[in-house]
């Protein structure tokens, strides 16, 4: 088991992530229709399709390039709230940060932590607001813990998936404080947040790629 991925491997992993998110469109649409506009699945599909095209088209010399390209593609094409938020998730952690050519748990923890802060600031949201932040905050926490313990990338991502999943489950009990779920009040209880679900799918597919490719 390796402790890091190189540039071509990271590209492959991100392509897989995009494909998995696209394939999750029906699930995301169903979840978002319950308490949102029902357009989250369509939006994520559009963004990931654009990101996938860019990942296929370009040559990358840093890990930063791979993630910022993914984020920018999503911001450019998706629109809605998700475009900026999910674009920021991939962009901010690597934009104007130290350039790296390998991806390990520390890098992933640090970059997603930076992104988390950017999302909270931009979206004016905190954990507990029934958003994707609820999943991301726990995933980042797990990544940090894994980094401290010197875990391998796959192990770290396995923990992140667990954290994200816990975050998704927590959103079921929360009242929405932003977006459409806010106006539903109590009616939002019992429904998981679609954005949080996407975060979980993203980490889950990263981990799955490592498993399937024995990294």
């Amino acid at each position: 088991m390796e402790h890091y991925l190189n540039i071509p491997q990271t590209v492959q992993m991100m392509k897989f992530v995009c494909q998995e998110v696209m394939d999750s469109k029906p699930l995301l649409t169903e979840i978002d229709s319950a308490i949102g506009d029902g357009d989250h699945g369509i939006g994520m599909e559009v963004g990931c399709k654009a990101a996938l095209q860019e990942l296929q088209r370009n040559e990358f010399s840093t890990i930063n390039d791979i993630f910022t390209t993914t984020g920018k593609s999503m911001i450019k094409t998706m629109g809605g709230a998700s475009g900026v938020i999910f674009g920021t998730m991939f962009l901010s952690g690597f934009h104007k940060q130290d350039e790296v050519t390998t991806l390990n748990v520390e890098t992933l923890a640090k970059s997603f932590d930076t992104s988390l802060h950017a999302i909270k600031k931009r979206g004016k949201v905190q954990p507990g607001d029934k958003t994707m932040v609820d999943a991301l905050v726990l995933a980042v926490e797990k990544l940090h813990q894994s980094a401290h313990q010197g875990a391998a990338l796959k192990e770290g991502l396995e923990n992140a998936v667990e954290g994200a999943h816990q975050g998704v489950e927590e959103t079921k009990q929360l009242l929405g404080r932003v977006g459409r779920a806010k106006s539903l009040g109590e009616r939002a209880i019992g429904h998981q947040d679609a954005g949080a679900t996407s975060v979980w799918i993203i980490f889950k597919s990263m981990h799955q790629w490592l498993e399937e490719n024995d990294k």
Partner: peptide, 11 residues
């Protein structure tokens, strides 16, 4: 933007 969805920052 698309129907009922905000335009992108680039648009």
């Amino acid at each position: 933007g698309n129907v009922f969805a905000a335009p992108t920052p680039y648009n």
